[in-house]
Amino acid sequence: MFNKMKLWKTSKDKEISEDRVGQIMNQPIPQHIAIIMDGNGRWAKKRALPRIAGHHEGMKTVRKITKAANRLGVKILTLYAFSTENWKRPKSEVDYLMKLPEEFLGNFLPELVEENVKVCTMGDTTRLPETTRKAVNHAINKTKHNNGLILNFALNYGSRAEIIDAIKQLSADVKDGRLNENDIDDECFSNYLMTKSLRDPDLLIRTSGELRLSNFMLWQLAYTELFFIDVLWPDFSEKHLMDAIESFQRRSRRFGGLISEEFQ
């Protein structure tokens, strides 16, 4: 039984009612939500704080939204944590961002285990510092038998690089005779991507008011419903997550043809 009071007991959003939660739960829930977590730096700047303060506050939001998504019945939550372009930021900021997974998972891992959340990643993690990789791998191993929400961190991820790498792997398989070029279709190509074991996102949320995809899951988002919100990531709350899900539930998903039976 879904415990509504447990879900919202630490929320600042006092206006969230049990009836609203119940209404959302009675409609199709997006099974895979992807989030571009934007606005940490601007949040800090508005408060005359260093940018790293915004990233630290954003980490708290990750914890809050992960717990809310899990209890609402979302199956996969993919978070754009660090892009291939983020290496261009000042070294001090990048160094701090590399420490965040260790801090976040170190503090939050017991709750993830308790709440049956499974941690996974996508992206080229070989470039990450060893301490960061160890923290991430430890969380993956500790939660590998969990079968609740999949918490998928996009770390050192860029969609164009992912697609190019997929093309290289696919070409090699054709060249070596492991794949017939006539068998290449959407499904075949998807199996060469980093998300091959995950369904495509049903809903993409981007915070901070920016209206772009920023090289995030370009192939996978082909028929994803998009939700842009003018709220900085550290201020994104359970209420905002519910706003996005309710917006999703009011839409008809056609995938270029008939309305999907899954979300009727």
Results as ranks from 00 to 15, higher is better:
residue 49 L to V: 08
residue 48 A to N: 14
residue 107 N to A: 15
residue 111 E to W: 10
residue 181 E to I: 14
residue 128 L to P: 01
residue 259 I to F: 03
residue 237 S to R: 07
residue 194 M to R: 05
residue 174 V to M: 04
residue 95 D to K: 08
residue 78 T to R: 04
residue 51 R to I: 09
residue 171 S to C: 13
residue 191 N to V: 02
residue 64 K to G: 05
residue 100 L to P: 01
residue 196 K to E: 02
residue 129 P to H: 03
residue 105 L to Y: 09
residue 70 N to Q: 11
residue 114 E to R: 12
residue 124 D to S: 01
residue 229 I to A: 06
residue 36 I to T: 06
residue 122 M to I: 15
residue 214 S to D: 05
residue 15 E to H: 07
residue 185 D to A: 07
residue 167 I to Y: 05
residue 157 Y to G: 02
residue 64 K to Y: 07
residue 8 W to G: 01
residue 164 I to V: 15
residue 38 D to W: 07
residue 72 L to G: 00
residue 233 W to N: 04
residue 226 L to E: 06
residue 15 E to A: 08
residue 117 V to M: 14
residue 159 S to D: 04
residue 170 L to N: 00
residue 245 I to M: 05
residue 19 D to Q: 10
residue 169 Q to R: 11
residue 220 Q to V: 13
residue 64 K to L: 12
residue 54 G to M: 12
residue 98 M to G: 03
residue 50 P to S: 10
residue 191 N to H: 10
residue 144 K to H: 15
residue 64 K to W: 03
residue 77 L to K: 08
residue 205 I to H: 04
residue 186 D to W: 04
residue 78 T to L: 05
residue 26 N to W: 02
residue 51 R to K: 12
residue 181 E to D: 09
residue 155 L to N: 01
residue 260 S to E: 10
residue 135 A to M: 03
residue 25 M to T: 12
residue 152 N to C: 14
residue 231 V to W: 05
residue 154 A to Q: 06
residue 37 M to A: 15
residue 141 N to P: 02
residue 252 S to H: 10
residue 193 L to M: 14
residue 2 F to S: 10
residue 88 K to M: 06
residue 244 A to Q: 02
residue 19 D to R: 09
residue 170 L to D: 00
residue 111 E to D: 12
residue 23 Q to E: 13
residue 69 A to R: 01
residue 83 S to N: 14
residue 73 G to H: 07
residue 31 Q to M: 11
residue 253 R to T: 02
residue 83 S to A: 14
residue 21 V to Q: 04
residue 228 F to P: 07
residue 250 R to Q: 14
residue 62 V to F: 13
residue 161 A to C: 07
residue 80 Y to Q: 08
residue 195 T to E: 00
residue 21 V to P: 00
residue 45 K to I: 12
residue 216 F to V: 02
residue 46 K to M: 11
residue 85 E to H: 09
residue 232 L to E: 14
residue 43 W to M: 02
residue 146 N to T: 12
residue 197 S to Q: 08
residue 194 M to C: 15
residue 56 H to V: 12
residue 237 S to V: 11
residue 38 D to V: 12
residue 137 N to W: 07
residue 160 R to F: 04
residue 188 C to S: 08
residue 48 A to Y: 08
residue 227 F to K: 09
residue 132 T to H: 00
residue 91 K to M: 13
residue 53 A to K: 10
residue 11 S to I: 00
residue 165 D to I: 01
residue 108 F to H: 06
residue 210 E to R: 13
residue 97 L to D: 01
residue 102 E to D: 13
residue 167 I to M: 14
residue 93 E to P: 04
residue 156 N to D: 12
residue 63 R to F: 08
residue 37 M to Q: 07
residue 173 D to L: 01
residue 212 R to Q: 13
residue 217 M to H: 03
residue 229 I to S: 06
residue 244 A to M: 05
residue 58 G to D: 11
residue 137 N to K: 14
residue 118 K to I: 01
residue 163 I to V: 15
residue 24 I to V: 14
residue 63 R to G: 06
residue 81 A to E: 05
residue 237 S to P: 12
residue 86 N to M: 06
residue 180 N to T: 02
